[in-house]
C-alpha cells in the first residue's frame, strides 16, 4: 500500500523535525530521561512494538450484524471496561419513515487509524501506534490531558475513572499477542466482525476487501481508519441526524445524579 509508505515517510519527517526541535529545546535536561517517544518504545518492549510484519485491521460485514451487542458485552468483560464507558458499541438505528423503514446497526470501536489524530496531538507520547498498527495508550506515561479524546473524530476514547488515564480499544492486543482473536470478534454472534492481518493477502480481511466494496467511517476525517465496513449506509457513515437519545433523561428522572457529560435528550 503506497499510502502506508507515504505515511511512514511523513512520520519519518515528523520524527526528524521534532528531534531537532526537541534536542534544541531540551538539551539541558538529563539525556537519559528525555525521549522522543516514550520509555517502553525505546526499550523495544514487545507490547509497545507489536508484531512487526503485520498490520491488524477489522472488517465489519454489516450484512451479518444483528445488533445483538454481544461484542459490547464481551469487550466490557474481557477488558474490565469501567462503568458507563465503552470501547465498542453498536448503535441501533431505523432508517426511513413508516412503512418504509429499515433497521441499521453500526458496530464501532477504535479504528486504529493509519493517521491517528489521537497520536499526533499527544503531548507526552503516551499514545502511539505499534508497528502492527494497533494504537495503544501507555498508561504509565499518560498525564491525562484529554487532548487525544477530543482529537479522535470517532469518540472512541474515554478517561478510565480508575486509572485516570486515557483509555480505549486495544484491538485486544493482549489476545493478539497471544495468537488469539479479540474478544469482540470471538463473541460476534452474527459473524460480522472479522479481524486479521491486511499485510497477508490470503487473510480473510484481505479477501473480503478485495471482493466487496468497503468504506470507512467519516472518510473525510483524513484519519484513514483501519476498520472497514461492508454494506454501510451513507446516512449513518458520518454524523447521523435524529431525535435525541432519551436514556440520560430517564436516568435523571429516575433520580440518578447526572453524569458530568450526559446526552441532552430532546
Amino acid at each position: 500500500m503506497s499510502e502506508e509508505k507515504s505515511s511512514v515517510k511523513r512520520r519519518d519527517f515528523v520524527k526528524k523535525t521534532s528531534a531537532l526541535l526537541g534536542i534544541a529545546a531540551f538539551s539541558a535536561t538529563g539525556a537519559k530521561a528525555f525521549s522522543l517517544t516514550n520509555p517502553g518504545r525505546e526499550k523495544k518492549d514487545k507490547r509497545h512494538i507489536g508484531q512487526e510484519t503485520k498490520r491488524f485491521v477489522m472488517v465489519m460485514d454489516l450484512r451479518k450484524c444483528v445488533g445483538c451487542q454481544a461484542c459490547s458485552a464481551a469487550c466490557k468483560n474481557e477488558n474490565n471496561v469501567p462503568k458507563e464507558k465503552y470501547r465498542t458499541y453498536v448503535p441501533e438505528y431505523e432508517l426511513g419513515v413508516f412503512p418504509d423503514v429499515r433497521k441499521a446497526f453500526l458496530p464501532q470501536l477504535c479504528n486504529h487509524c493509519a493517521e491517528p489524530s489521537c497520536v499526533s496531538v499527544c503531548p507526552t507520547g503516551a499514545t502511539f501506534a505499534r508497528k502492527d498498527g494497533v494504537v495503544v495508550v501507555d498508561g504509565d506515561i499518560c498525564w491525562g490531558c484529554g487532548y487525544c479524546i477530543n482529537a479522535c473524530p470517532y469518540d472512541k476514547r474515554y478517561f478510565n475513572p480508575q486509572t485516570n488515564v486515557a483509555d480505549k480499544c486495544t484491538f485486544c492486543a493482549h489476545r493478539l499477542d497471544a495468537g488469539l482473536l479479540p474478544a469482540c470478534v470471538e463473541s460476534c454472534v452474527g459473524g460480522a466482525r472479522i479481524s486479521g492481518d491486511i499485510n497477508d493477502s490470503n487473510s480473510e480481511v484481505s479477501k473480503l476487501l478485495k471482493q466487496f466494496p468497503a468504506t470507512v467511517l467519516k472518510p473525510e476525517s483524513g484519519n484513514q481508519p483501519r476498520v472497514f465496513y461492508i454494506g454501510l449506509n451513507g446516512e449513518i457513515q458520518g454524523l447521523p441526524f435524529s431525535l435525541g437519545l432519551l436514556d440520560d433523561k430517564v436516568k435523571q428522572k429516575d433520580g440518578l445524579t447526572p453524569k458530568e457529560w450526559s446526552s441532552k435528550g430532546v
Binding site: 477488558n79 498508561g139 480508575q162 486509572t163 485516570n164 492486543a173 493482549h174 497471544a178 488469539l180
Partner: peptide
Amino acid sequence: SDRGVKAKDSIYVNAALPECKVV
C-alpha cells in the same frame, strides 16, 4: 504522585490474562 490505581498492565490495561497462547 499518581491519582487512582494503576492498571494491571500499562498497555493491556485491565484486560484479563489470556487463557492460552498459540504460537
